[in-house]
Design a binder for these strands. Structure first.
Lengths: 352, 352
DNA sequence: AGTTCTTGCACCATCGATTGTGCAAACAAG
DNA sequence: CTTGTTTGCACAATCGATGGTGCAAGAACT
């Protein structure tokens, strides 16, 4: 408790202590000293002083001067979800490995909030912005463009800058087919026994629905419109949709394509409200992977999106000199029921 | 991406455009203009100019001058977990409502990384730091103290500043008791049939273990040492521990107290490796809540920590003039199997 | 010895906003 | 008409780091 009011040391403090000028101190400590022909012994002296006085550069000052901050932003819809939080986890690791500082912020899928959040990040002079799952990527683009900020879309595409997204059509196909196959041999699934719940009118949902319908047509020979129920993403809206279906039909569809793990939570809520149903004949396909969901009492087939692949690709593309505003598709992976996959956490060592 | 060359407007630009001095522009735009007796019409003019030129203040410059940044940091162990990501979600909402900018960073439970991350955040002149689940809170404290930065511990306590944590002893007791009661009427549980897996030598684990042992003694009359298996937090280490137990005993214990949802993932991995076991007689208590885990095929009793309560309390305490370095306990909640609770996401409106 | 390099650093403007201080002009009071 | 008082704003220093430029002292060379 020695140094309560102690201010952080600056290059000026070290300048006085070392007898050199502030610019010399600065050069030594930011690595440009050789270019400035500072003597090794001078550098050594200053480095030692910096060490003993626990000097760290004030990044606001540095950022102000150089108009770069060392911050790289990730704009998420929400944190509280395995898909997006693993996005955050993976993003962090990449940014750290570049020696920069990640800053992860969520904007609740609200276009207005997305733009305002981007504005805020820009006012901190972030160096790059990764726009993940934005409801209005092009709106955010405008803001970034006006500030001359490099940016890229992930998960949901925009039209003005490159986008790295899951191949949702292919994923939708894989998942739909896996659900249907699950009933083979058994009493085969009929077209009106396979429903899709959740999602809204965004690119990802549209593509998944397209895949869903295509496969239904190919394998079941029909694809009734009423089997598509885009309830939005809120768990409770999904719950209400299940509730309504149950009310009308006295049961759930045998095959369920659930658009996201968030919507899946709506299914859980529905189930909690019907404790005596055992949902024996149910097969769920969920477009998102969650290890616990994979072990539920009914077969749950899941799609794991390749978060690592998307982030890696996004970093590649954003570094390009003049990136095209095209869409890069990353293949997702089908996960059979009762599968426990490893994730970004497994890269961490566990300290005992 | 696009650096269209357009620079952001500064107070100097607006100063020229409005014919006022930069300081006047600054005062108008940061709200101190009345104190400076700026004419309403002047203010109006400048406000309009700011609007049409999309002015936003450069926060690095402001922060440099005022040595405050408007950033409030949250240091997490990891993102990729429902407990911590809901911490991030809740934290964000609180910070936003104070008109500041949240910055959430993870440090992988590594004491060295925790300190370095804190250093980095400090170099951006963050205004406050919430240290959540840190392996070495007092180490981070040193760093903050040296920089004169307000900070507080959450989830895992330190000794130098206030800490807001779950009542892990009580939670451990509740969970243990609930597991034991689950077997009542049935063939009652024996002391060596109830094991605790996961966690390590941190305050939370110790308290939970203390509660676990106390209740076992009270209700089962004994509390053998070998029933405590602190495997650390890594899922794979937990898996290995389950594997080893299974190897020795040909089955799992009937009652399992799993220290965290991360450790629970280790149990899933074990189960994935033993597809023919049905684990009929198993009751799991997990110290963490996850909606999907709650609906697994065997009874899963969970503890939900009161994240909202902890964050709220932490904000209260950190605002205090001279906060005592004491521990504030927040009561967690027992969640019966097959329960779908709402979370921070439900506060968001869903846009269609 | 005089000239030209090279070495090693100091000086100073600059990034954009904040804030204490000063000072004219307008106005009021005597 | 003189002396205060208030109004409305401009000036300039400052936060800490960066990087272009300049310049003295020593080395090298003729």
């Amino acid at each position: 408790m020695a140094s309560s009011g102690k201010k952080k040391a600056t290059i000026y403090d070290l300048s006085v202590l070392s007898g050199s000028s502030p610019s010399t101190v600065s050069a030594v400590l930011n690595g440009t000293w050789q270019k400035r022909r500072i003597k090794e012994s001078t550098a050594e002296l200053i480095r030692n002083l910096a060490e003993t006085h626990q000097y760290t550069a004030n990044r606001q000052a540095r950022g102000l001067r150089s108009s770069r901050s060392g911050l790289i932003g990730l704009l998420l819809p929400i944190h509280d979800n395995r898909y997006f939080s693993s996005m955050a986890q993976t993003f962090e690791a990449h940014v750290r490995s570049k020696g920069q500082c990640p800053i992860v912020v969520s904007a609740s899928r609200d276009p207005e909030e997305e733009r305002k959040t981007a504005e805020t990040l820009i006012s901190y002079s972030i160096d790059e912005l990764f726009i993940c799952g934005a409801t209005d990527p092009d709106g955010v683009h405008e803001v970034c463009e006006a500030a001359g900020l490099k940016h890229i879309n992930i998960d949901l595409p925009g039209t003005r800058v490159p986008s790295v997204i899951s191949d949702n059509y292919e994923g939708g196909r894989m998942l739909t087919e896996a659900i249907i196959r699950r009933f083979e041999g058994d009493r085969p699934l009929l077209p009106d026994e396979l429903y899709l719940f959740g999602g809204r009118n965004d690119h990802a949902s549209r593509e998944r629905i397209r895949g869903f319908r295509a496969v239904k047509n190919e394998l079941l020979g029909a694809d009734p419109d009423e089997c598509i129920q885009p309830t939005g993403y809120a768990p409770n809206n999904a719950r209400l949709a299940f509730e309504a279906f149950y009310e009308r039909n006295g049961r759930l569809p045998r095959g369920l394509f659930v658009n996201s793990s968030i919507n899946f939570e709506g299914l859980l809520r529905f189930m909690a409200g019907h404790p005596h149903e055992n949902f024996a004949d149910l097969v769920v396909g969920c477009y998102d992977y969650d290890p616990f969901a994979s072990f539920l009492p009914f077969p749950v087939i899941m799609i794991r999106q390749d978060v690592e692949g998307m982030i890696t690709k996004a970093f590649e593309v954003i570094e390009e000199a003049r990136p095209q505003a095209r869409i890069h598709l990353i293949q997702p992976e089908l996960v059979q029921p009762r599968t426990a996959l490893t994730g970004p956490l497994d890269a961490l060592r566990d300290i005992e």
